[in-house]
Design a protein around this nucleic acid. Structure first.
Lengths: 224, 224
DNA sequence: AGATCATCTTGACGCCGTTCACATAGGTGA
DNA sequence: TCACCTATGTGAACGGCGTCAAGATGATCT
């Protein structure tokens, strides 16, 4: 019939094609993945307004109706693109955290990595959050163990937070996310350019902002 | 020809109609305002996906092409709706600030008022920020003296910040905005419901978040 | 009154998301 | 081997969208 869940995983069903062979081995071979990739290419090169289902199908070289055999509708395709983004954001956060000199610095680096990802993939980031806000919840993926969400909690504990104080832990975790999200969406505003340059570049600006805003540098209710 | 700027101000041009007379005095009378109002009604009652130019025209009782005599294109109409939102947000912030017992509390109340407005008008708030992010800058309106932006700066100074430390002032102001924005967009997520209830309602939750996140409760680089 | 000009309508264009009937081709079991 | 089944593709069509050009309408100015 039709794939219902994650489009990136073909399940143990009948192996249909070598996935990345030359030209077009099967009917298409691996349309799901091709469509998601095409969607992301269009998003990056031509912006969100150009991201139509038909354009994605064109980019993948299939008819406008073909995607409907792999995704219920357009928003499900966009969800798959967004999911790829959440996955990469999680990886970026893990990398940032690992690069920190000490547990306390890890929190800061998580924030910087988060904002950095969002600033490097603005259209993708906005798509990710758009999807999340529409359903008024974080994507399931963001809550798995190895996600950004999980890393924040772990980093908080390693920095000395009391994991038994559940309420404060939750508040701090959410606050961190709000914090990073706010900075991520506003750091690109043009009126801040002069200040950015005066501070020696965007990263310094972002660090200043995160520091001012607090949680990444000093989660005081937990650590003070 | 065609109105170029603010659609809400009819300028000193020829008075065309009594503005709010019965039925339809002139060709329409005051289509600009009617269209903005219709747009907002649709946004609130049927959501952003239903907010098409044609639907707005229908709601206002005119043909699909009529709006083009008042707005360059759809996005200019949406900008006008958003501008109304920024105006109201500014007023809400002013009210919150005025209700505070002391200068320090004023900062907190500004944050609470901001988030409260966003939570009460989620679709409008998202439209407002969407427009801002698209052009990568705050709307001009948000930067005028009596806007939310201005109130934050004033409140910071009244709370004891040093207005001559320009860089820190700017950083704090931006941080406050990031802060409020992040909380505003995430406070509605469903996975936080249990915590919200445990804390005695959404306002307490928001205050906790703003407090954790820092700037509204303790802009330390400036005040400590 | 006649000219003028902003305003509104009609009709059209191309693009969109989506659906449906049909075509095609790999895999399966007789 | 071959008929069948199912997954996957195409083509044509629908209504809705944003937008524009040409024409109708009616208030205002001289």
């Amino acid at each position: 019939m039709r794939e219902t869940g994650n489009a990136a995983i073909q399940a143990p069903a009948a192996k249909v094609a070598p996935a990345t062979a030359g030209a077009r081995p099967y009917h298409h071979g691996d349309l799901s993945r091709a469509l998601v990739a095409a969607g992301r290419r269009i998003l990056e090169s031509e912006g969100p307004s150009a991201l139509s289902l038909r354009a994605v199908a064109r980019e993948a070289g299939v008819s406008p109706a073909a995607p409907y055999h792999h995704f219920k509708d357009k928003s499900e395709l966009l969800d798959a693109v967004a999911e790829e983004g959440w996955h990469e954001l999680g990886a970026a956060i893990a990398t940032g955290r690992a690069a920190a000199a000490n547990p306390r610095a890890a929190l800061t680096e998580i924030g910087v990595a988060y904002v950095s990802f969002a600033r490097k993939n603005p259209a993708l980031y906005r798509l990710m959050y758009h999807a999340a806000c529409d359903r008024e919840m974080m994507p399931d993926h963001a809550k798995t163990q190895d996600s950004g969400w999980g890393h924040v909690a772990e980093a908080l504990v390693e920095a000395g937070a009391d994991p038994t104080n559940e309420r404060e832990m939750q508040l701090a975790q959410i606050a961190a996310w709000c914090n990073a999200h706010g900075v991520a969406e506003m750091a690109g505003f043009k009126e801040f350019e002069p200040l950015k340059e005066a501070m020696g570049g965007e990263e310094a600006f972002v660090r200043g902002l995160l520091n001012h805003v607090g949680i990444f540098a000093r989660p005081r209710a937990l650590l003070d």
